[in-house]
Design a protein around this nucleic acid. Structure first.
Length: 205
DNA sequence: CGACCGATTGACT
DNA sequence: GTCAATCGGTCGG
């Protein structure tokens, strides 16, 4: 499967983030593969009070300051992981948070990671497999060891968009932040059931 | 050090 | 709608 070239990521995050919509993210762990279509992302930038990179590089966020094309995975709320596509050139602390993915292959494996032995019980369970940044990480088995992994590795890569977002690309304010709430840096496929957040923000823009 | 709190989720009124 | 869970990053003293 064709992969996005590293040059794709090494551009400004506000350019890269919307272009990630419709792309396929493929994850292989211990020989088992899951994949899905990216439908929702948020941009974070160094001059942005809501961004982890706002106060400069630290041990935690240093991956954000590296060259675009790797994964920034962080631990939050004492129990969840979130994954970002690092963008821009070396020295710019920016990344796109993956917030929503439409599952394509490996749904059984995703379900066992998300729900354990219970697996899939209802249509609502399928909808929640990787809707939301922490749910996506759980379904794709992304956590601490995956911080900094290059996005052209066999373990994880992103392929160019399969189908263009059918409802078009919409944008809104970002979810769950306290600062810079006026910035409309959340990009999503309008109308997609795999997009997270309150419903009035899934058709907005 | 100690205190605060988060780019979230799931359970529950 | 409300709220607790749970812990490491960050900052002030």
């Amino acid at each position: 499967m064709r992969q996005l070239p590293m040059a794709f990521y090494r551009r400004p995050v506000l350019q890269v983030a919307p272009e990630l919509l419709g792309c396929i993210i493929v994850r292989t762990f211990r020989g088992r593969t899951v994949s899905g279509r990216i439908v929702e992302v948020e941009a974070y930038r160094e001059d942005d009070p809501a961004s982890h990179s706002y106060r400069g590089a630290t041990a935690r966020n240093e991956v954000m300051f590296g060259p675009g094309g790797s994964l920034y995975v962080y631990f939050t709320y004492g129990m969840h992981f979130c994954a970002n596509v690092v963008t821009g050139v070396e020295g710019h602390g920016e990344a796109a948070l993956i917030r929503g993915v439409e599952p394509l292959t490996g749904l059984d494996l995703m379900a066992s990671r998300r729900y354990g032995r219970k697996r899939l019980r209802s249509p609502a369970d399928v909808l929640s497999l990787c809707r939301g940044p922490a749910r996506f990480c759980e379904a794709f088995h992304l956590s601490r060891p995956d911080n900094g992994i290059p996005l052209d590795s066999p373990e994880i890569f992103i392929a160019p968009l399969s189908t263009r977002p059918s409802g078009g690309v919409a944008r809104s304010g970002r979810i769950g932040i306290r600062h810079a709430t006026e910035k409309r840096w959340r990009f999503f496929e309008r109308g997609s059931p795999w997009v997270s957040g309150p419903r009035h923000l899934t058709h907005f823009s």
